[in-house]
Amino acid sequence: MAMLHTVNKSPFERTALQSCLGHALEGASVLLFEDGVYAAMQGTAVSAQVSEALGKVRFYVLGPDLRARGLREDRVIDGIQVVDYDGFVDLVTSHDNVQAWL
């Protein structure tokens, strides 16, 4: 089992995602939610970095937060799994510990 990292800030405003990726070990998971979901989209300044990180960590993005912001699931980077709040709960219980990158 491994660690679940949560990122709730836009990568264009804060360093939370950068810092998270700098500390996420191989096999860890990252959940993007709230304004963190902007990092899940294709064609942004951080997409390449997120895609590269997908080789090392699993990425999840909270669907309700995507939809609230008018972001389409088909524009989410390949390999990122969309989950709902039930999925968020499952991620918490299926990992050893949770680090929130506030």
Partner: peptide
């Protein structure tokens, strides 16, 4: 180092961030 800290964080049971 960042890598060492990442490993130490990984060993924790409870991470309190503020």
């Amino acid at each position: 180092s960042r890598e060492e800290l990442a490993r130490i964080m990984d060993e924790q049971d409870v991470l309190l961030s503020f």
